[in-house]
Amino acid sequence: MTKEGKHIIIDAFECDSTHLNDIKFLEEMCKKAALDADMEILYSYFHQFEPHGVTGVIVLSTSHLSIHTWPEEKYVSLDFYTCGTLELTAQVEYLIKELSSKRALVYSISRGVSYPQLIQSEELGG
């Protein structure tokens, strides 16, 4: 396996707050995103905060997918990191759609490279 990879960082705003406090929904959503990319899930752990909010991580054989929610702010942060050359566009679009995000900032960072780079970003939604 190559050390090079892609790290996608998502800031999703104006999300459906009921989804952001639903631990089962969030875990299944994250697992589906990973499995649909043919990634191997090694471990999954999600925690429900009181009075609200969820944090979770899925450890993948190629790295990880993590999520942190703030239902009271209708905000979610996600990190999706994978080694190799896998394209994650479909998974990013799926996650944003499932969260009912009206606006999301998506950052793409190459990992494992030994040269300076520009971090690419795009805004989705509107």
Rank of each mutant, 00 (worst) to 15 (best):
K3L: 08
I10L: 04
I10R: 01
D11P: 07
A12G: 08
F13C: 09
E14W: 12
H19D: 04
L20R: 01
D22M: 03
I23G: 05
K24A: 13
E27A: 02
M29H: 06
K31E: 15
K32H: 10
K32R: 13
K32S: 08
A33M: 04
M39C: 12
M39P: 03
Y43S: 08
Y43C: 08
Y43F: 10
Y45H: 12
H47A: 02
Q48D: 06
F49T: 01
F49L: 13
F49V: 02
P51E: 06
V57N: 12
V59W: 15
L60T: 05
T62L: 12
S63N: 15
L65Y: 05
S66A: 14
I67C: 15
I67N: 00
T69C: 06
W70L: 11
P71Y: 07
E72H: 15
L78F: 12
F80I: 09
F80Y: 15
F80D: 01
Y81W: 09
T82V: 15
T82C: 12
G84C: 05
T85V: 14
L86T: 11
L86D: 03
L88I: 08
A90Q: 06
Q91P: 01
V92F: 06
Y94R: 00
L95I: 13
L95Q: 01
I96L: 03
K97C: 07
L99D: 00
R103N: 14
A104E: 00
I109T: 12
S110A: 13
